[in-house]
């Protein structure tokens, strides 16, 4: 298939062109870039929602229910569910679809599971590109589910316009661990499994943390309660997601956030390309080997050599 066929396929809501393009992105195939270029002007419509929180908190169950609610409201939805790749074998078990079986056959929903594949910074790049594809495909909302633990997850969540942080009662010290990076980026706090003891205490802890953070000009993150397994509290959560988006728009922050993301995106692409170029010019040409000897013999120094190599890029 050629590039234009993929682009047309995605714009015409062809599921196979869409899923194949996401594979090209994940495999860092050069075709993906050309497809993305063609799609770019057709993106920007979708709202991007991050769902994150500790393992087993109920993120997928919650996403399933939230998406069903959005479907009854008439929206088309994309879901990108990310699970960790094993650093030892490079394999992964991506199990989020287990909680979304009925959505599988809903033509208004597209679900894609992704492994982190241990790419430094590459994951958020791949995720962002996949989001673009689903946006062009015509999704009104795109959900990104990740386990909220490491820096790479925090980076991914920065792609989202609204971040829902899912917590569960009785997390105890875990809240400390999570606080580190991800607590700061929660726009909505959701206490799931509130059928369990400890929801009140957790709510107080989050409330206190928010108080410490100071004042909120446009949006103070609400603390909600859900029981995802039976669909309790879901429509309120959806309403709050929409309210957050509205507040972002009205305050001008949405534009600011998008501009900022665009800058980061361009920088990331540039860095990637530059790294490749440096590799070509310095290593593949044998230039670096040649100069390394001269540096060792003190005929020149690393700084001068770097300048010489840079001038060739």
């Amino acid at each position: 298939m050629d590039i234009q066929k993929y682009i047309d396929g995605i714009l015409n809501r062809d599921v196979r062109s869409t899923s194949r393009t996401i594979s090209l992105i994940e495999n860092q195939d050069s075709m993906a870039v050309e497809i993305l270029k063609g799609l770019y002007k057709h993106t920007g419509h979708a709202r991007i929602i991050g769902i994150t929180g500790p393992p087993g908190a109920g993120k997928s169950t919650l996403t399933d229910k939230v998406v069903k609610e959005l479907r009854t409201r008439g929206f088309r939805v994309g879901i990108i569910a990310i699970d960790p790749t094993s650093p030892f074998t490079g394999g992964a078990i991506l199990g989020d679809r287990i909680r979304m079986q009925e959505l599988s056959v809903d033509p208004g929903v597209f679900i894609r599971s992704m492994g982190t594949r241990g790419q430094l910074g590459g994951l958020s790049k791949a995720t962002l590109s996949a989001v673009k594809v689903l946006d062009a495909y015509g999704c009104d909302y795109i959900f990104i589910e990740t386990v909220g633990v490491g820096q790479s997850e925090v980076d991914i969540m920065k792609l989202a316009e609204t971040v829902v942080l899912v917590m569960i009662p009785g997390m105890g010290d875990d809240i400390q661990a999570i606080k580190a990076g991800i607590m700061e980026i929660g726009d909505i706090f959701d206490i799931n499994k509130c059928d369990r003891d400890g929801a009140d205490r957790l709510a107080i802890e989050i409330e206190m943390m928010l108080d410490l953070k100071g004042h909120f000009e446009f949006w103070r993150p609400p603390i909600l309660r859900t029981q995802a397994s039976i669909g309790k509290g879901i429509s309120e959560l959806v309403d709050n997601i929409d309210n957050h988006i509205k507040s972002l728009e009205e305050s001008g922050l949405l534009r600011e956030r998008r501009l900022n993301n665009i800058k980061v995106e361009v920088e990331n692409i540039l860095m990637g390309e530059l790294t490749k170029k440096v590799h070509q010019v310095a290593k593949e040409s044998g230039l670096l080997d040649e100069y390394a000897n001269k540096i060792l013999e003190k005929e020149t120094d690393p700084f001068t050599v770097s300048e010489i190599i840079l001038s060739k890029i």
């Binding site: 599921v15 196979r16 899923s19 194949r20 996401i22 594979s23 790749t85 094993s86 074998t89 490079g90 394999g91 992964a92 078990i93 991506l94 199990g95 679809r97 287990i98 079986q101 599988s104 056959v105 597209f110 679900i111 894609r112 599971s113 492994g115």
Partner: peptide, 30 residues
């Protein structure tokens, strides 16, 4: 798990799948 250990990316969908669900997942997950 054996597939994962062999380096495969495994999409696991759980019990009681209808043929329609399986085929939809095959296509969306490519």
């Amino acid at each position: 798990r054996a597939f994962r250990d062999a380096g495969f990316e495994v999409i696991y969908t759980g019990l009681r799948q209808t043929p329609e669900q399986i085929v939809a997942a095959v296509i969306q997950e490519d």
